[in-house]
Structures are given as structure tokens and as C-alpha cells.
Design a protein around this nucleic acid. Structure first.
Length: 322
DNA sequence: TTAGGGTTACAG
DNA sequence: CTGTAACCCTAA
């Protein structure tokens, strides 16, 4: 879908625009298209878009809300095979190239994501219900990171925990008490046979192919270092990873509605952060790495939502240098 | 201005 | 032929 020819040139949405839109929605709420457009933080990127464009784009991005358990009513265009539901979440392939007009002079993107508990039900209207599936593996992102870190370090005799921690801290956005978490995770991974521990050093287990650990992930990690990406954060996230884990565990036992709502919020926030990174880096692959940070943020958001008392989680200020 | 329906162009 | 993405039209 590169060109549409016709008469005009079709303005394909770039990653920058897309993420600016998401950030704008996170900030002002869905539906406030004009407001978003006027916001100095986004007006630059979205200068060629109209409020209607924003609305349409948001609609396009918001397709499919796979409802698990609930029978979605009709809406199927024709009598197609209702059995095979196109569970496409977001086939975000890497668009890469930018669409001509490029006013991407913004080298610093500042997000002000705020999660409030007031009754605005903007952002996400559907619930992914990731909680129930968490039994499979919901917090495995970190596991994958650790494994990939060990793999990338590629030390014949294995890597020390400190080395692993250093590596990960260079690439990602570790939680507050990362050391503690890392120790725990290393134990888990060793116990589950994904890593081998020898003399306080960790190695990749011989046949440890994490289900979805494609080689592309490895390439990805090795590609990053040359990127002068820096994430300076002045975070207000005071929750530790273990606390988040506990909250998530507790969430499974609470009402589905509550958990779903919190999860939906978290996912929305995560996508926003991820989108910002995507815009700044302009590399879909790198953005995926950044999504890890978003994941951590999402978990923190979940916990934050859970503690209604402090349901205001304001992250931020992510500076991204290119 | 916004939300929703409709249209055009294209990919599979 | 069907689904998707950007665009267009229009009521409220």
C-alpha cells in the first residue's frame, strides 16, 4: 500500500504520526482530536493531518477487540466463516521509510502519561483480558531478556549476574530493585532448565529454545548497542517489581471486571510509551525492544490502578536522543 | 467538530 | 472476493 496513485498522493501514516496520535490520546483522551492537534507537543508531527484524519486513524487502529467468551454479535459483513476469527491484534509490520514530508525535528519527546481513576472510559473500550491467560506466562518478558542477555554476552564459561545486570541495564529500563528481581529470575530460569549455573556463572542451556525466542530477537539485541538511545527517566514509579508481581497475582483472584479494566489501562499506557519510542527511533525493531520498557510500565500501571489510593501514576519525561 | 457510514485503492 | 487503510460525506 505504498502509493495509491489516483490523483493525490496517499498520505500513509508514518510511525511518528501514529505514535504522536497515541500519545495525544493518552494525554487528552480519545475524541479530543482538535485539542490533540493544537497541542504543541504533537502539532509539529501532525501538522499535515486534520482532526478527521486523527479520528479515522484512531478508528483504524482500534479494530478488533477480540472478546473472549463473549459472543460478538453479528457485525460480520457477510456469511463468511465465522469460525476463523481474524484475531489480528496489530500486524504492525515495519513501515520504515517515511512518507516524504518530514518535519521530524523533534529530537526530544516528552510524554506526560497520566492514569487517573476518574470515570472517563476513553482510550480502551474493550477488554483484552490478558489476566486469565497469564497462567501461561505473563511476566516472561523479563525472562526472555535475561536469556537473550546471556546469549548475547556469549561468554564461553558463562556470565556473572553482575555482567548480566550491566548488559540489561544498558539496553533496557530495569525496574527499581532490578538486582533483587534478577536474582530471583535467574533462579527460576536455572530451575526450569533454561539456564545453567556453574560457579556462579550462567549459561544458556543446550536445548533452550524459548518457544517464541526467534533468532530475530538476538539480532535485535545486538543491533541496539550502536543506537545512542538513552532513556533518562525521572520516574515516579515507586513500586518494586516484586510488588507488582504480587499485585498481579492478587489480580487473578479479584473480580474479572476490575482486573480487566486495570489491564486494559495498562496495555493502553504501554502502547503509548512504545509508540513514542517507535517514533523517536524510527526503527520498528528497536521499538520492539523499547516495548520491554513499556511492559514494565504496564505492570507498574496495573499495580497502581490496583491501589486506588494512589491511582495516579505519572511517568515521565522520556528523553530520546537520536 | 465529532461520530459514523460510505467510497476508493490495494493486498492476499 | 474479502479485509484493510486512507479518504470522503454528512447528520447532529
Amino acid at each position: 500500500r505504498y502509493k495509491k496513485a489516483r490523483n493525490e498522493e496517499l498520505q500513509k501514516w508514518t510511525a511518528e504520526e501514529e505514535s504522536a496520535l497515541k500519545a495525544g490520546i493518552a494525554k487528552h483522551g480519545a475524541g479530543k482530536w482538535r485539542t490533540i492537534l493544537k497541542d504543541p507537543d504533537f502539532s509539529n508531527v501532525l501538522r499535515y493531518r486534520s482532526n478527521v484524519d486523527l479520528k479515522d486513524k484512531w478508528r483504524n487502529m482500534n479494530v478488533t477487540v477480540n472478546a473472549s467468551g463473549a459472543r460478538d454479535r453479528v457485525k460480520t459483513t457477510t456469511t463468511t466463516t465465522a469460525a476463523t476469527t481474524p484475531v489480528v491484534k496489530k500486524p504492525r509490520s515495519a513501515p520504515k521509510h517515511e512518507g516524504g514530508a518530514g518535519g521530524h525535528s523533534t529530537s526530544t519527546a516528552i510524554i506526560n502519561a497520566t492514569v487517573t481513576s476518574d470515570g472517563d472510559e476513553d482510550i480502551v473500550d474493550a477488554v483484552p483480558l490478558a489476566t486469565s491467560s497469564s497462567s501461561k506466562r505473563s511476566l516472561s518478558r523479563l525472562d526472555n531478556i535475561i536469556v537473550e542477555a546471556v546469549r548475547s554476552l556469549n561468554e564461553p564459561t558463562g556470565s556473572y549476574k553482575t555482567a548480566i545486570a550491566n548488559y540489561i541495564e544498558e539496553q533496557y529500563w530495569p525496574p527499581a530493585d532490578f538486582d533483587h528481581v534478577l536474582s530471583s529470575k535467574l533462579n527460576d530460569l536455572t530451575a526450569s532448565g533454561k539456564l545453567i549455573k556453574v560457579n556462579r556463572k550462567y549459561r544458556i542451556a543446550p536445548s533452550s529454545s524459548l518457544s517464541e525466542g526467534r533468532s530475530s530477537k538476538v539480532v535485535l539485541l545486538e543491533d541496539i548497542p550502536k543506537e545512542p538511545i538513552k532513556l533518562d527517566r525521572e520516574d515516579v514509579v515507586t513500586l518494586t517489581k516484586s510488588q507488582v508481581d504480587a499485585e498481579l497475582a492478587r489480580m487473578r483472584t479479584m473480580t474479572a471486571d476490575e482486573a480487566a479494566a486495570a489491564a486494559a489501562r495498562a496495555v493502553a499506557e504501554a502502547e503509548t510509551i512504545m509508540a513514542e519510542a517507535e517514533a523517536a527511533v524510527r526503527e520498528a525493531e528497536a521499538a520492539e525492544a523499547e516495548a520491554v520498557a513499556a511492559q514494565a510500565f504496564a505492570e507498574a500501571a496495573v499495580a497502581s490502578m490496583k491501589n486506588r489510593s494512589s491511582a495516579k501514576l505519572s511517568l515521565t519525561r522520556i528523553k530520546i536522543f537520536e
